[in-house]
Structures are given as C-alpha cells and as structure tokens.
Amino acid sequence: MTETLMTVIVVTFGGMMITAAIAVLFVRDLLSAIIITGFVSLSASVMFLLMDAPDVAITEASIGAVLATMIFLWGRGKIGGDG
C-alpha cells in the first residue's frame, strides 16, 4: 500500500471518528448515541489494523464494538427507552 493511500484512509477514518464522537453529544435519541459509540469503536479497530496491530484490532472490535454496545443497550432497556 502506498504512503499516500494510507494517509488518505487514516485521515478519512480519523475524521469520521472525530465527527461521530462529537455527534454522540448532540443526538437526542439514546439509541442513536449508543450505535454511534459502537461505530467509533469499530473505526478505532480499523485504525489499529492499519497500524499493524491485528490482535488489538480484534480485541477492540469484540469488546468495544460488540460487548460494550450490548451492555449499553441493556442499560437503556433498563432505564426505559428515550432519555
């Protein structure tokens, strides 16, 4: 992979991560906020993969994007939907 292509991908994903992380603060719906948090984790795992750390990428994808999101969703179910 060429240096330029790598830079473009990293900047794209970094930009999306920052945008999503700020968007979490402003969305009204709790469900959307949880899904966007999961997206930030998934983008982080792609970044780890690009930085040649596949084992960290798997950890981030399974814990950050799946397990943590699921526990947030259950917490939302407990407090009763929209908040």
Partner: peptide, 10 residues
C-alpha cells in the same frame, strides 16, 4: 497474532 483475551471475548 492472537491471544487468550481477544479469543475469549470472541
């Protein structure tokens, strides 16, 4: 690349 912790979470 791998390990007990990530594999366990999978």
């Amino acid at each position: 690349p791998g390990g007990g912790f990530p594999g366990g979470t999978v």
